[in-house]
Design a protein around this nucleic acid. Structure first.
Lengths: 337, 337
DNA sequence: CATCGTTGCTCAAACGTTTGATCAGGTCAA
DNA sequence: TTGACCTGATCAAACGTTTGAGCAACGATG
């Protein structure tokens, strides 16, 4: 390993001179030849500052952690891309932790924040944990940003505009003439599910469609939850003609189950999903979907966290720009009856 | 931040006594009461060893890096799960880097290995880079393990049994009675594509089916590549009745394109894919697939890397147990003609 | 010629941990 | 009573970096 001392020896100067030149310390006065000699020596020896030494001295690691409960969730890929890109631009690298344990003393939090491995943490709370369950984790006001979740008060959070997303999806079905709608939603404790329900209801209210009698399932965001939701829909007394699915993976499961049950999409049932992804355009029929900006959410989470670290600013962000956008494919059509 | 000094002060002993007791140094003799006092003090203060201090002294970070070119690739989720699990068991955390830049001086390698942020690196080389292009990266024999790729000589690697996977898939079509087969494969420079071709050819040879005239596309592993491959298949003079697709994402794209072109699966065309995933069972028709052990590959990569770090042992591993296994769904059937 | 200010660097401490060397005090045998 | 040995700790250096304080040399000023 090449250290500052090696570079200093080769350039014939002191360690501190090297350190200051290489890190661009403006308080140091050096002659141009010396500066060049130092830079040349560093280049020739291929010097890289040692991370641990720097971290120890500066109490900063330039590492951001992200903790997610499930890598399979379709949002993860885009989210992670956004996090990676924004982190790189801000001079950080990303450490990934997976944990579905929301307890504040969960190993992953101790490991990452407690041992000082990361400067800050982006946490996607596992679906099905009430936000107030996080109270203890956030007690000491650690540098944490929550995504898709909010905690009262002192911690930053980043949300997508779930209300608008669900509203756009619902309005699409209403515009096609559907009146008997269903909402295939996330777990009862999920905050995003709550917000998507709100958008669904707002759209109905605006269109003057009475809400009563409309089916809502709260089974979760996974493919098998979508499958189960279809069973509920088929068992309903007044079968809906259109369904808003709150997650693309669940929609894919629902679509597969529909085929198996001989339910034709979109003739018998229109399906629109909140959250677009490459998988949505390769189903049969291709899924009409509302794009959610997970990439932007990842970026915003990093920006929020970095602002928090740099200036102590805590903020809650809702990604409203660009707004959720509908892509009409072939899983929706006017009701046939 | 709680340091060893804080714990030492509270327990009324020296810093080194605390360090040795907490890290279980057997060379230290302490009375039981002192030991208890130290442990109690650490507990009460919620002491966590500072990562940077430890890393600086020990020249070990207990961090493994993984660099992948594309998070969308269906293999990533399972792979990452395996890496995470094995890393945790071995006492490491995982740092994720994304890079499609195979040059050895790519920023990500400098950042992770050069600055000593990680003890070792798991690298999935971007598809389309010849293995020998890695020569320079591996020149100084860094602690790197390659997945799905091999480099001549000194570096460890982990491969799946692609030959067997493709062979099982091909044999399934042959068993159904198909004789005009096509292979929808990865890019010409992809090592896995080469190995899957080999399995395909071996199965044909064993069945005594002449190879000439059989179509192979080398367009890549992404959904749009699968779509393009279908076009090639439709344009072929003697249209195949069965197709082996080397990647599940490509298979999904191919399936979607088939629907759009009115090609019925499996009646007009049987499709089997190498690599099973939850997406394969939710297509229409559900995809017959050969499971590949990406989770096991992730675990093996970590094990190999840790062995390398602990004992300097370099090894090349091929995951053959459990072997690739066929799951017959509805995308394959005997040829109709 | 003494004083001062500036230039161009170097010195040394500090971050928190690990670890081999050391040491005070006691016990035991000769 | 002295030396040898053991017990139960402490001391101090080191890892590589950052950074404020310090300092020698020199030209300019009074």
């Amino acid at each position: 390993m090449v250290t500052l001392a090696d570079v200093a020896a080769r350039a014939g100067v002191s360690i501190s001179a090297v350190s200051k030149v290489l890190s661009g310390d403006p308080s140091l006065r050096v002659t141009e030849p010396t500066r060049e000699r130092i830079k040349a020596a560093a280049r020739e020896l291929n010097y890289r500052p040692n991370f641990a030494g720097r971290a120890l001295k500066s109490a900063r690691t330039q590492v951001l952690g992200i903790v997610v409960p499930d890598l399979t969730n379709a949002l993860f890929t885009d989210l992670m891309d956004g996090v990676e890109d924004a982190a790189r631009e801000a001079g950080y690298v990303v450490l990934l932790g997976r944990s579905d344990d929301p307890r504040p003393d969960a190993e992953v939090y101790q490991r990452l924040l407690g041992e000082g491995r990361v400067d800050g943490l982006i946490v996607q709370v596992v679906d099905g944990v009430a936000p107030d369950g996080l109270g203890a984790l956030l007690e000491n006001n650690p540098p944490v940003v929550l995504i898709n979740s909010v905690a009262p008060g002192q911690v930053g959070s980043v949300l997508l505009d779930d209300v608008a997303g669900a509203r756009v999806a619902t309005e699409h079905l209403l515009d096609l003439g559907h009146r008997r709608l269903a909402l295939v939603n996330g777990l009862p404790t999920s905050l995003t599910a709550e917000r998507r329900r709100q958008g669904f209801r707002e759209a109905l209210a605006d269109a003057g469609v009475p809400r009563r009698g409309l089916l809502e399932t709260r089974l979760g965001y996974r493919p098998e939850n979508g499958r189960a939701a279809l069973e509920e829909i088929l068992a309903a007394p007044r079968r809906p003609t259109g369904v808003v699915v709150a997650n693309v993976n669940a929609a894919i499961g629902l679509l597969a189950a529909a085929r198996e049950h001989g339910v034709r999409v979109p003739e018998d049932l229109s399906v629109v999903t909140v959250h677009d992804s490459w998988t949505a355009e390769n189903t049969w029929p291709p899924l009409t979907a509302v794009s959610m900006r997970f990439y932007a959410m990842g970026r915003a989470a990093v920006d929020t966290l970095v602002a928090r670290l740099d200036s102590g600013t805590v903020r809650d962000v809702v990604i409203t720009d660009p707004p959720p956008q509908l892509t009409v494919r072939e899983s929706t059509a006017p009701p046939s009856a």
